[in-house]
Amino acid sequence: MREVLRNAHFVVAVDHAARLVRVTRSAEPFDSIEQIEQKCREVIAALAPVDRTVMSLLLDIRAAPGRNDPKFEEATLRLRTAAVRGFGRVAVLVQTTAGALQVRRHNREDGIDRMISDDERELLAYLAAAPPWRPR
Rank of each mutant, 00 (worst) to 15 (best):
A64W: 05
P132K: 07
T24D: 02
M115E: 11
P70W: 15
D15M: 13
D69V: 11
V103R: 00
P131M: 06
R78V: 12
Q102H: 09
I116R: 00
T97C: 07
V103N: 00
R136D: 08
A128V: 02
G99W: 00
E122V: 08
F87C: 02
L47T: 01
L123P: 05
C40W: 09
E37V: 03
R136L: 03
W133Q: 10
R114F: 03
A13C: 12
S26Y: 08
R114E: 08
V21C: 11
L77S: 04
A91Y: 02
A17G: 08
G111R: 08
F30G: 00
R134T: 06
L59V: 13
R22S: 10
R67M: 14
A130Y: 12
R22G: 06
D110K: 03
T53K: 09
D118T: 05
C40P: 01
L57K: 05
P131S: 11
K39T: 01
D51I: 03
M1Y: 13
P132T: 07
R2Y: 11
G66R: 10
A128E: 07
G88M: 11
I36L: 06
R136Q: 06
T53D: 00
R25C: 10
A64P: 04
R80N: 08
D51T: 06
E37A: 02
S26A: 11
L5V: 15
L57W: 05
T76H: 01
C40N: 06
A27L: 11
D15T: 10
D110C: 04
A48I: 12
F87N: 01
D69H: 15
P49F: 04
V14S: 14
D31R: 12
R80V: 04
R121N: 14
V103Q: 00
R134A: 03
E3A: 12
L124E: 04
L20N: 12
L5G: 04
G88K: 11
Q102M: 09
L123Q: 05
R134H: 06
A8E: 15
R121S: 14
P70G: 11
V50C: 10
V21E: 10
M115H: 08
V23R: 11
F87E: 00
V92T: 01
A46T: 05
T81K: 09
V12Q: 14
R134G: 04
Q38E: 15
A75Q: 03
G99L: 04
M115V: 12
A27Y: 14
S56D: 02
F72A: 12
R108N: 04
R19I: 08
E73G: 05
P132R: 07
H9L: 15
G86R: 00
L127R: 07
D15K: 13
V12M: 15
A130T: 13
I112D: 00
V54A: 13
G99T: 02
P135T: 01
V43D: 01
V84F: 04
A91T: 02
C40M: 09
G88I: 11
L123M: 03
V12C: 15
A130M: 12
A100L: 09
